[in-house]
């Protein structure tokens, strides 16, 4: 994994995923270290994503590394029409690793091809966001004690939600049972169901929360966005169906945790926040340890 870019979650095997999660647990025990002393990490955010950027920058700072870069392409040479190729080649001269967020799909792959230093994809359009997937998995491992044989409910926009697609792909290494809860228009695409079929993994589809939520180990919530619907009436009909409320957690398993990639809008009612099964804010904190693990592993430290 040393010196290898992380563009897609599929770049890592099951063993490599576990290796990152082990390392994340070490950083959680000791998050402040000096191993990045003297290292410069470039943080190139071609579109703003404050949460992800702060998480990476916190991860680097806690390990003693320095950050250079920009948080919005508006203030950079990109605005003057510089190609991605040229930006990457220039920035690679000044840094040991590049963290990149870009609105265009496949941008991270291209950057990894031209860059002499490793690239970590912090999201390329609607395509991949592998560090999110790894922090989701770290959260699952930490709260469940294992990744094997879990029952995971994915809720909301399962058609366009890249986080649920990547999580599905990555968790498919661990004999997961999936339950998909989504409106008809935002169902899990066939290619992912076919992928699970080929692996012989079980999945069930529902259009609303069911009594089966009592069997869930993880409920992973995502946002149902108005702009995804061709018919606005359809959105009005379903918008309240995919909101999780505290009362719905009553008969769920004691180990069950609610995850969400954040930011949330209204899909998790605030009355869930005080429930000990609400885990989304700790999940965000886990992102720092996971990103420390990813950067340290790629730099061979």
């Amino acid at each position: 994994m040393k010196n290898r870019s992380l563009v897609s979650i599929e770049d890592y095997t099951k063993d490599e995923i576990l290796q990152i999660l082990d390392r994340a647990a070490e950083f959680e025990k000791k998050p402040i270290q000096t191993i990045l002393n003297g290292y410069v990490i470039a943080s190139l955010f071609f579109e703003p994503s404050t949460r992800t950027r702060l998480s990476f920058e916190s991860a680097v700072n806690k390990l003693g590394g320095r950050i250079i870069g920009f948080s919005d392409s508006g203030s950079s040479s990109v605005k003057k029409g510089e190609s991605l190729n040229d930006t990457i080649l220039t920035v690679a001269n000044y840094s040991d690793l590049i963290v990149m967020r870009h609105p265009i799909e496949g941008a991270a792959k291209l950057a990894s091809e031209v860059s002499p230093v490793p690239v970590v994809n912090a999201g390329d359009g609607a395509n991949q966001h592998p560090t999110q997937t790894l922090l989701d998995m770290y959260s699952i491992l930490k709260t469940q004690g294992t990744l094997e044989n879990l029952n995971i409910f994915l809720v909301g926009d399962l058609k366009y939600g890249r986080t649920v697609h990547s999580l599905l792909m990555a968790m498919s290494h661990f004999n997961t049972t999936f339950n998909f809860i989504s409106p008809e228009e935002l169902k899990m695409p066939d290619e992912y169901k076919l992928y699970l079929d080929n692996l012989g993994l079980k999945y069930y589809e529902h259009t609303d929360f069911t009594k089966y939520i009592a069997e869930a180990d993880i409920v992973y919530m995502t946002r149902v966005q108005r702009e995804r619907f061709s018919d606005p009436m359809e959105y009005e009909k379903v918008k309240n169906v995919y909101v999780l409320r505290n009362s719905m957690l009553e008969n769920t398993k004691s180990n069950m945790k609610v995850l969400h990639p954040l930011p949330r809008v209204n899909e998790i009612h605030q009355d869930v926040d005080t429930n000990e099964k609400a885990y989304y804010f700790q999940q965000a904190l886990n992102g720092v340890y996971t990103r420390q693990a990813i950067i340290a592993t790629i730099l061979g430290l």
Binding site: L84, E105, G106, K109, L110, A126
Partner: peptide, 9 residues
């Protein structure tokens, strides 16, 4: 929205 349709790749 693919990079190949947005940059010279």
């Amino acid at each position: 929205k693919c990079i190949t349709n947005n940059e010279n790749v």
